[in-house]
C-alpha cells in the first residue's frame, strides 16, 4: 500500500512536468497507479459510450475491480451548485457505498451540459430513489440549491454501466421536460412519461388530435381544470380526497370532471380514460 502511495506521488510529480494525466501499467496490463482515479475514468468512458459492455467488464478486470453485487447509477444535474460540493455531500452520504464518481459533459445524451455521475453499491440502499432523494434534499437544505437527479435500475455487472447511464439520463430528461416540482426520477417508474417521450415527433399532433379532438388546447391551457385533473389522478381517482385537497365541494369537482369529459370525451373516473388523459397531457407538455 505504501509503495502504491509512493508511486502515486511520483506520478503526480511527473504529471506536473508532462502536463497530462498518466497511468502506470504492470506487466500484466493492470493499472498500478494513475493521476486520475481509474475507476472514475472507466465510469466516464462507459457513460460517454467510448467502450462496449465487454470492454467495460474487461477494463474493470484490469483494475482488479470486482463488481460488489447490486449497484445503481445516479446522474445529477447540479444546477448552480459547484460540482465539488455535490461530490463532497455524496461522499459523506454514501461513504464506502460510493464506488466511483465522475463528471461528464453529457452533450446530447441528456439535455444539459455538465452532469455528475455516482455509482452506488446498493447494499444499504434497496431503492435508488431513496438514495437520490436523500442526496437531493440534503443539498437543498445545506446549500439552498436546486439539483435534479435521475436514477438507473439496480444492476449487478459492470457491463450494464452504459445501459444504466442511458436509463438514468432518460429519467433526468423526463424531469426537465415534464416536471417543475419533482427533483428525482427513476427509470423504473417512468411509465407513461417514457411513452410520451418516445412517441415519434411526427406523430405528436396526430396523437393529440385523435385522443382529445379539438378540445386539447382548451383543456390544457385551463390551469384550474388541469390542477383538478392532476390531483384527481394523484389521489387514485378518489373524489372525496380530491375535493378535500382542492378545498372545493364535491359538486364543484364533479362539474369540472364533467367539463373535461364534455370537451375531450374522456371520463376521468374510468381508469382507461384517466390513463389516456395523463398520456395526452404529457405529450402536450412535450410538444409545448
Amino acid at each position: 500500500m505504501k509503495n502504491q502511495e509512493r508511486l502515486g506521488e511520483l506520478l503526480e510529480e511527473i504529471k506536473e512536468l508532462a502536463g497530462e494525466d498518466l497511468y502506470l501499467h504492470g506487466a500484466d496490463g493492470r493499472i498500478l497507479a494513475s493521476t486520475k482515479d481509474p475507476r472514475s475514468e472507466l465510469l466516464r468512458k462507459a457513460a460517454a459510450g467510448e467502450l462496449s459492455p465487454e470492454d467495460v467488464s474487461a477494463g474493470a478486470r484490469q483494475l482488479g475491480w470486482e463488481a460488489p453485487g447490486a449497484m445503481f447509477l445516479l446522474i445529477m444535474d447540479p444546477g448552480r451548485l459547484l460540482g465539488d460540493v455535490a461530490v463532497e455531500a455524496a461522499r459523506a452520504l454514501f461513504e464506502k457505498d460510493l464506488l466511483a464518481e465522475t463528471r461528464i459533459d453529457a452533450g446530447e445524451r441528456t439535455s444539459g451540459s455538465e452532469k455528475l455521475l455516482f455509482l452506488i453499491h446498493a447494499s444499504e440502499w434497496e431503492d435508488p430513489v431513496e438514495a437520490a432523494s436523500l442526496l437531493q434534499t440534503s443539498l437543498e437544505v445545506e446549500t439552498v440549491t436546486d439539483v435534479r437527479i435521475g436514477t438507473s435500475q439496480v444492476f449487478d455487472s459492470f457491463s450494464s454501466l452504459s445501459l444504466a447511464f442511458r436509463h438514468a439520463g432518460m429519467a433526468l430528461k423526463t424531469l426537465e421536460i415534464f416536471s417543475q416540482k419533482e427533483k428525482v426520477a427513476s427509470w423504473r417508474h417512468l411509465g407513461l412519461q417514457l411513452a410520451a417521450l418516445r412517441l415519434p415527433e411526427a406523430d405528436v399532433s396526430d396523437y393529440l388530435d385523435s385522443v382529445l379532438g379539438e378540445g386539447a388546447g382548451q383543456i390544457f391551457s385551463d390551469s384550474e381544470l388541469m390542477r383538478t385533473a392532476e390531483v384527481f389522478l394523484m389521489t387514485g381517482l378518489n373524489s372525496a380526497e380530491t375535493a378535500r385537497q382542492l378545498c372545493v365541494h364535491r359538486n364543484t369537482l364533479n362539474y369540472r370532471l364533467d367539463k373535461i369529459e364534455r370537451t375531450t370525451g374522456l371520463d376521468l373516473k374510468r381508469f382507461e380514460d384517466a390513463a389516456a388523459f395523463r398520456l395526452a397531457s404529457l405529450v402536450w407538455q412535450r410538444k409545448e
Binding site: 459523506a92 452520504l93 444499504e124 436523500l134 434534499t137 440534503s138 437543498e140 437544505v141 439552498v144
Partner: peptide, 12 residues
C-alpha cells in the same frame, strides 16, 4: 430551510 424530510446522513 427546514423541510418535512429530515434528510439526515445515516452514517454520521
Amino acid at each position: 430551510m427546514v423541510f418535512q424530510s429530515y434528510a439526515l446522513y445515516p452514517h454520521m
